[in-house]
Amino acid sequence: MEKEGKMVTIYVMGKKHRVPAGLTIMKAMEYAGYQLRRGVGCRGGFCGACATLYRVKGSYKLQAALACQKVVEDGMYIVQIPFTPAEKKLYDIEKIRPTPNVFVEHFPEITRCLSCNTCTKACPQDLMVMDYVQAALRGDIEKVVELSFDCIACGLCAIRCPAEIVPYQVAQLARRLYSKYILGLSEEVEKRVAEVEEGKFDEELEQLKRLPPEELRKRYESREIRV
């Protein structure tokens, strides 16, 4: 906790709470007594479940953040957006092709883009969302992939878009097409999949399943991550 237990005031859906400074929005809400069932996930900034909108006293700006990442500020008005209403577009990646019109075909609403950049302003990952929507409009799959790689599909861009576009779905289609048709198969992945299918890791997995939770936790915490 921060020095001398400094407290700040936040407003969760209009209700005032005093919470310790230095907490993330998510932790501050839990501190204030909210039990989060939706709008919470990995707590590490990766899953995109905790999309949040806020304003800070004295500023007109409607800002967007992930509740698990953003630290509370004094005078913050907060609402979580745990779900973005968006139709799940169905397509068979084996059947569609990386054609210039593929985005327009599946997401014709991208033709409504105003280039207003509101999506970019809303992105907690600081992606250039508007630029990738525009790249999608002109069928530049590679550019969409490059610009959207860190998208976690939190949905904030879609909530803010005045043209009612769901940018993260467009980006997802781009990455799927790119992996399938442009990047080609990865030897390493092929090899590993074959190993898995041959049962190379079956025994190891069985061992893990039998471990007590404490031992699992210990191994998890001391795991080595190689890049």
Partner: peptide
């Protein structure tokens, strides 16, 4: 040359 960054003019 093409502009390195551009969007549809509308």
């Amino acid at each position: 040359m093409e502009l390195p960054r551009w969007n549809c003019c509308g």
